[in-house]
Amino acid sequence: MFRKKVIAGNWKMNKTATEAVALAKDIIGEVGRETSVDIVLCPPFTALAAVAHVLEGQAVKLGGQNMHPEKSGAYTGEVSAEMLRTLYVTHVILGHSERRTYCGETDAFINKKVLAALAHELKPILCVGETLAEREAGSTLAVVQRHVEGGLAGVKPEQITTVIIAYEPVWAIGTGKVATTAQAQEVHAFIRDLLTKLYGTTLAQKVRILYGGSMKPANAAELLAEKDIDGGLIGGASLEARSFIDLVKAADAAK
């Protein structure tokens, strides 16, 4: 089953609007017309409008880093799916470990976001993954199963191929540590098997599963060669144009 690779850059709380425009221009200058890989840039909310303007007419897509499940209301500091759509956002990161950890987001709350995103024709990038303590306790697969099943509750078969899942071992985010290729593939294969049980083989084989734990140019080729690793949700390496472009090229070579 051919699955187009995805390289998504999560800029987190980095880059002013001016800096974000400069980075986006550097990236599209080299891969702006790339169509063999799905490229998604996820700047902070304050830079979405400016980056949207830069990406106009390019193959590169725009993503949000989070959203609230409600359409509107008294939710100070939050952003709705409709607000994202008005800025030409096509993807949104949901359930990132930093939001689970720092903001207390639960699987049930994240699930509401996933359903809201799909209702507004946004492509959710659903993040799942274990902490170091959970891995050392041998509960990696149980945690991942809880995140996947909880996050996808109520997602219909006809919607599931719109969802992208990102496996992010929390202990490998921003630490420089990386799961071995075998460790990453084991969890990706487990997620694929879960999807098969939930949605059947045909649909499960169409869902893209990204690796989100310190992927960088030095390790990308090996990771992307695995049969169930369909790209990367990139943190630190997405903040520098050259490294991000090299990751896109690695994904293109691995297709």
Rank of each mutant, 00 (worst) to 15 (best):
V6E: 00
V163T: 13
A237I: 04
V248D: 06
I229W: 00
F109H: 08
G63H: 03
A117I: 04
V248M: 12
V6A: 01
G57S: 08
V170H: 00
A218P: 09
F109N: 02
R192C: 12
I209C: 05
E105H: 06
I125Y: 02
I28R: 00
A47F: 03
A137L: 12
V54C: 01
V155P: 01
K12P: 03
K5V: 02
F2Q: 13
A74G: 09
T175V: 13
T181F: 05
A22H: 08
C103Y: 12
D252H: 15
R33G: 11
Y88W: 09
T196S: 14
G57H: 07
G104I: 09
G213T: 04
A241I: 07
L41Q: 03
E136C: 10
E30H: 12
A153P: 01
G236N: 06
L152G: 02
V79S: 00
A74T: 10
L23Q: 10
G138T: 13
E226P: 00
L203W: 09
D193L: 13
V60Y: 02
N14R: 15
T162M: 14
V155Q: 06
T161M: 13
A250M: 10
C103K: 09
I125P: 00
A179R: 03
V143Y: 01
G154C: 14
L62F: 03
P44F: 03
S72D: 13
P217T: 08
L132M: 11
I245W: 00
K15R: 15
Q205K: 15
A8R: 01
T106R: 01
